[in-house]
Design a protein around this nucleic acid. Structure first.
Lengths: 156, 156
DNA sequence: CTCAGAGCATCAGGGCCCTGATGTGCCCAT
DNA sequence: ATGGGCACATCAGGGCCCTGATGCTCTGAG
């Protein structure tokens, strides 16, 4: 595979990657990849882990609320919860008040699995933070927040 | 829906969102959402647009090379290219040299559609950049690059 | 009291992305 | 020249995510 010169290849790569949003995308990809890697031993995907984590903070939440907390649509959350339920990590049953609301809770197993998975996930975050001074981390967060606001303010 | 106090809700939301990686994730989501929105009139998804764009920079590339340029697996790229081909936006045919390589090119239609879509996508990037001084943009990029390197260096 | 609206869940359908496993052709070093 | 290694494509299967559309229940305003 040498029909494209290395400099040519680099030029193209740079053009594709240069768009400002691309750095953000790469960072997100790297983060997801690393979390996926450390969560694999627990048999959890990133969305599954996030759902369990949110559930630990909001026990008994409805699927819709969990979806909001995890920034996904209720439909997506439903599919995630289905697989978690089929594995016995969570339990869902109708609320006594609202017949159509499904109250969701961690099972013992889910709780135990989350403990380990959370430690692994937190370790990744900690390693990431370790590359920055606290001042740099603040600056990064603040710049990203501005980017988020800028983009969100355009939407309908 | 008032069974959870608003302060309680905020506390939970903050806990879920606090993890450092989360700012990155939110930014990426906002970016994707906005690009999706501006590309909709062209009938293109973000991955489809990115593939067309990469193809315009590397005409005649193989599916594998496009996959590398777009940072996805060859399998994912194959599915994207399939839908683009079925819409007549690209053409693929075996390379004369390497029998098993599929040379891929934009069609006239694809090229025309990309022109409009690219303008819309670039406008989003420009709006994003508009929120920063060039010094800030550089700083953001450099911080993100460090984050990427940090995360990537851990993986096997 | 009644009826609209808001919130919740779910079905249907489309697209993206990944891991894992095959099969084939090219190329270079043995 | 031949065989191992590499690059390419593709099938199979699992999971996530979104839009759009339905149907249900509780609540509050008329």
């Amino acid at each position: 595979m040498a029909e494209h010169g290395a400099e040519e290849e680099e030029k193209v790569r740079a053009s594709v990657a240069w768009r400002p949003g691309n750095a953000i995308k790469q960072a997100e990809q790297a983060l997801i990849a690393e979390k996926t890697r450390v969560l694999r031993p627990f048999g959890l995907t990133v969305p599954q882990y996030v759902a369990l984590y949110a559930l630990s903070l909001a026990p008994g939440a409805s699927g819709a609320r969990l979806a909001r907390l995890c920034s996904v649509t209720p439909q997506s959350m439903t599919t995630v919860l289905k697989t978690l339920e089929s594995r016995g990590l969570i339990e869902r049953h109708p609320s006594p008040d609202h017949a159509q609301v499904l109250v969701t809770r961690l099972t013992e197993e889910g709780s135990a699995l989350l403990a380990g998975a959370d430690a692994a996930a937190v370790a990744v975050e900690r390693r990431l933070l370790g590359a920055f001074t606290s001042e740099e981390a603040d600056r990064l967060r603040s710049l990203l927040e501005r980017a988020i606001r800028t983009l969100a303010d355009q939407g309908p």
